[in-house]
Write a protein that binds this DNA or RNA. Sequence first.
DNA 1: TATGAATGAGCTTTCATTCAT
DNA 2: AATGAATGAAAGCTCATTCAT
Lengths: 211, 211, 211, 211
Amino acid sequence: MCRKLTDTQRQSILENAIKLIGSRGIARTTIRDIAEASGVSVGVIYKYYQDKKTLFEACLDHSLKFLSDTILSASAQSTSLADGMERLARVSLKFAEEHPEYIRMYYAITGSSDPEETLIFARRIEAVSAHEYNALLERAQKAGEIRSDVSPRILSFCFDNLLMMLHLTGCWPYYDARRKVYCGDADDEELIKGVVAFAKSGLGLKEPEGN
Amino acid sequence: MCRKLTDTQRQSILENAIKLIGSRGIARTTIRDIAEASGVSVGVIYKYYQDKKTLFEACLDHSLKFLSDTILSASAQSTSLADGMERLARVSLKFAEEHPEYIRMYYAITGSSDPEETLIFARRIEAVSAHEYNALLERAQKAGEIRSDVSPRILSFCFDNLLMMLHLTGCWPYYDARRKVYCGDADDEELIKGVVAFAKSGLGLKEPEGN
Amino acid sequence: MCRKLTDTQRQSILENAIKLIGSRGIARTTIRDIAEASGVSVGVIYKYYQDKKTLFEACLDHSLKFLSDTILSASAQSTSLADGMERLARVSLKFAEEHPEYIRMYYAITGSSDPEETLIFARRIEAVSAHEYNALLERAQKAGEIRSDVSPRILSFCFDNLLMMLHLTGCWPYYDARRKVYCGDADDEELIKGVVAFAKSGLGLKEPEGN
Amino acid sequence: MCRKLTDTQRQSILENAIKLIGSRGIARTTIRDIAEASGVSVGVIYKYYQDKKTLFEACLDHSLKFLSDTILSASAQSTSLADGMERLARVSLKFAEEHPEYIRMYYAITGSSDPEETLIFARRIEAVSAHEYNALLERAQKAGEIRSDVSPRILSFCFDNLLMMLHLTGCWPYYDARRKVYCGDADDEELIKGVVAFAKSGLGLKEPEGN
DNA sequence: TATGAATGAGCTTTCATTCAT
DNA sequence: AATGAATGAAAGCTCATTCAT
């Protein structure tokens, strides 16, 4: 009846799906819910996405674009490794606060999908950040900026683990509660400073003189 | 057919539920599956657990006992902070390898449940380890063993974040894939050594002379 | 809520399904229709029959029992081949008039199912009558009662073809109309007499003297 | 895109519909399938055919033209009743082998449609052959070529029943299986000869001397 | 006039929950 | 007190039909 979905509507499907998955989990998000939230019919969703799973994968891809853009941009603006680390920590928390549904959905999908498929997701999700961090730390190691007794890949794994927790913290009730259990009422600033300090030492980063 | 459920049977219900949730996820685990796997009737499960959600909460509690026992025991055996950290890192990976279903279930439940309820879970889950780590690090800080420029609570938060990833890594396909993306083929030993080294530096741990 | 289906109810499911398929065809018979007509819930049908197809196969089996009983009984009562042929022709029309839904359903199923599966149906359906007719005619041929220039199997095929049409005629609008187109207003008696006469001559049956 | 449908296209719609119905059955043939197979849009089909049912009726009509042409032509070429019967038997099997989709579709439609409507189909389908056979046999009866104790209409009904089975046999798995159950491995030639012999005797056909 | 995307009723199937036994 | 068959709401998905373009 409506003639060809507008781009807005197509976007709307993904975004509403992401929001719904983020807030209720995959199992409790129905195609009908998504259709209604997006103001389209059930049928049209199946026009664009083969089935529920395919739609959810598209949601993941959609949100990953945002995430990787954020990471790459923070990375590009950094003037030094130390600066980059702090930027990344900050955008991790900020992104989570501004687009909590993306992180939530990402968590819901990785946690609920068929084990076999999570492999593919993992590659897609981590490829961007892993590659970026590895490159960053490899360079730093060669430049003697960081410790050399641990491989840069494991170091970036550790670093990403910390960032990941910052992502989850603040946008998912569970992780928020966890943060409170650990950190009490420490505010974002204190948290970020603390985590960055921990990470810098963990990497064995030699602070430039004047710091 | 009318004998009261033995304790063994009640245990069995929880353990089978945990196994099933861990391997298939919440949505694909049915009460009937659990009943059959445990050799009891569907009805009796509803005698003991109000509904599916309540049963899953009980599963969580059940598995947390194992986890906290493991942590407390590792902690108790440790001769120094450095030793304790390494012990904890090792049992994290080992526990995950020996009881993957516990970690998987924990992840499935925190990821899929009603956001509101995860708060309660979080408190329950983290209370044990958080308390233990906080105490450990507070003591260490007072003894001048670790850095004092970051609050011990944030330090234990960082430390737990790393352990958590070790838990997930190795028992959940997604995190296993993620590890591969980051660390390539580095083996468990190299991974643990690397993570512990990172954590020690992150905490600013002064190695005792003779080590 | 009702505790265990009574035998009557289970029968009722099959019989209602047969009636519905017979009157509306397979595609337009829904599980919900059958459940409602039988006074049971939708779910319970899936307790007893894996899926729609399985239910329909059960319907076929159910109705075939009636059909084969009818045929065998007519066959058993016959005093001679000529007598048997007439009996069979009569029960064919009579059965169709008394249980039109059985014939209709049989037709609907053979016509609509997956081609591959009709093979199995065919064997089940025809095994009874084919075997009976073959035996009958083989004996008759050996006794010199019927022609010997055509194999008894082809003769029974021809004979069954005629009976089949009598089955369909009178219980399925299409075949009834077809009968009218051909035979005009000839009544059942005239039709049966004519068909039997045709068949007898076709088989080359030598009428016993006194007839 | 707005050119009026050519006759070829309209033909194509019918023929593709027939093929699809013949191979998959009515329920599994969608308007979209037919449109795509015919290279036209879904909408245009609704321009020419009120709905799915109407389209299928048109398919039936279309295929009946072929069938009646075949019958009339066989009939016209025949030099005697005996010759005509054999010709008709042969073209029945041959037509079914060459255009199985027509027979299959005819069967699918008569079996699945609304019972009430099959009346109309029946008249249309049988009108041609019934009229032809009736005329043939009436003439033969008057000429004393065949038995006179059974009305020519019932005789032609019997004869058509046999031909109908030859039609179905060989192009529909169910009837093919049925043939095997009855006739074993008897080949087409043996089958035709047998059926024709049966029918000739059934009609009481006096073979002309020199045959 | 032809198009084909959009519609949404309706289908099969699942499974948490109930309750007669 | 335990059983497990029955329930029926609700899910994913299909497809005949419509109608803006």
